[in-house]
Write a protein that binds this DNA or RNA. Structure first.
Length: 417
DNA sequence: AGCCTTTGACCAGCG
DNA sequence: TCGCTGGTCAAAGGC
């Protein structure tokens, strides 16, 4: 066991079929996709490339994806600014750059929110790292802002993914953060950090972690991947074709709650992907995680955030959180205005609109602040997002053949106008 | 005792 | 129509 011979299966990012990027900025786009989203959005062509396999392909993806880092490398050396446009053009064309590392999320437009393994969506949303407050009309801040914030902070502290901020919610799950490795303390941080995420919303939000598999050294029980504050009951498990990892099916135990989630495991038993489906129609159960210790704090933290942080005022808790799904799914038109102008394609927008209706869910939450480091196996056009990134660090992570790059956002105004 | 996991079987959608 | 595959059900067992 110590020596893991075979290359760990790369985590996959679920990307919505094409239009993702566009939709991100469009319709619900305003849902401030946040860096993660952006990242995912950046991998447009993936869909094109995989287009064929899209649907069922969810599971299999991993093929030659370029690693985020790799892309970064390449991208960094490229001129960033105009990329946005290029990207769009290319996107449609289907640059195949986005590697197969990304798996296509549910084709049918089911708004699925894929959370990086080990990550809990709620943590996601609650986590200060993400800010998506539907109530705020577009999530409190535009994705640019979020991005800026995130990246900016990230630059200060190169923690990985949802660094400490996440710890609150994630901590619960973080039973043992041995994984934390370099990170220091926060147990959960480790988990999150190791994962990369991708978000695809609206039509397909998919947050996923990229280097997950081997990296999610989630010591915690595999079956309980993410403690998102809700109670889940496993109702099935199945080996999905094209993937060696078994997929587990969970249902929210709350009566009448339609929410389900699928958790895919890697060969080594670690979680490689979590897909949430549906919206909780109830309040999150009271600290069920208290026993976890850290969770308690998280919970409190969360609450304080809800009320004090201002994220609110508006029912940030459930509705906010879930409201996000609405946002993501583009159900809330009002907020869309935010980015309305930045929308690249209204046509797509409309199209997505239709899709959105079909969306079953999406989980969501927002980054409230802080640092987020996006890790993806396929960075593709990460830098093509129209933002300017600056590399401020690089690190070779154990177990990961690819060096990890830390980027800071330099500007965020380009997309706005 | 209640809740959860496991697991084989069944069902439905799709090509 | 058939086979494949993903998703769900439900009985049995465990904690």
């Amino acid at each position: 066991m110590s020596a893991r011979p075979p290359p760990p299966p790369r985590p996959r990012l679920s990307l919505p079929p094409r239009s993702t990027g566009e939709s991100l900025f469009s319709g619900t786009g305003d849902a401030s996709p946040g860096p993660l989203t952006l990242a995912s959005a950046l991998f447009p062509s993936d869909a094109d490339a995989d287009a064929g396999g899209g649907g069922g392909g969810g599971a299999s993806s991993g093929a030659g994806a370029t690693s985020f880092t790799q892309l970064l490398i390449g991208s960094l050396s490229q001129p960033p600014p105009h990329q946005q446009q290029q990207q769009q053009e290319r996107g449609r064309g289907g640059v195949a750059r986005a590697g197969p590392a990304l798996s296509v999320a549910p084709p049918a437009g089911a708004a699925v929110f894929t959370v990086p393994p080990g990550l809990s969506p709620s943590g996601f949303f609650d986590s200060p790292g993400l800010i998506f407050s539907p109530a705020m009309g577009g999530f409190g801040m535009s994705h640019q802002q979020a991005l800026a914030q995130v990246t900016a902070q990230a630059s200060h502290s190169p923690l990985r993914m949802f660094d400490h901020t996440e710890q609150t919610s994630f901590s619960a799950a973080a039973t043992s953060s041995g994984a934390l490795q370099n990170m220091s303390s926060a147990a959960n941080v480790a988990e999150m950090s190791e994962m990369a995420t991708t978000i695809s919303n609206n039509e397909h939000a998919a947050f996923q972690s990229a280097e997950a598999s081997h990296r999610y050294q989630v010591p915690a029980p595999v079956d309980k991947p993410a403690d998102d504050g809700y109670n889940w009951r496993k109702y099935g498990q199945k080996v999905v074709k094209g993937s060696d990892c078994p997929r587990s099916y969970y249902k929210c135990t709350h009566p009448s709650c339609p929410v389900k989630k699928k958790v895919e495991h890697a060969e080594d038993g670690q979680i490689s992907e979590i897909i949430y489906k549906g919206k909780h129609n109830h309040q999150r159960p009271p600290n069920k995680r208290a026993k976890d210790g850290s969770s308690l704090a998280a919970e409190q933290n969360e609450q304080s955030n809800d009320t004090a942080s201002g994220l609110s005022g508006v029912r940030r808790d459930q509705e906010a959180v879930y409201g996000m799904s609405e946002q993501l799914s583009g159900l809330s038109d009002g907020d869309d205005k935010d980015d309305g102008e930045s929308r690249p394609n209204e046509a797509d927008d409309r199209e997505s609109d239709c899709k959105r209706r079909n969306i079953q869910i999406s989980s969501q939450k927002a980054l409230t602040e802080s640092k987020i480091i996006v890790q993806t196996t396929s960075e593709v056009d990460l830098l093509d997002d129209g933002y300017r990134w600056r590399k401020y660090g690089q690190k070779v992570v154990k177990g990961n053949p690819h060096p990890r790059f830390f980027l800071a956002l330099l500007t965020v105004s380009c997309l706005l106008k």
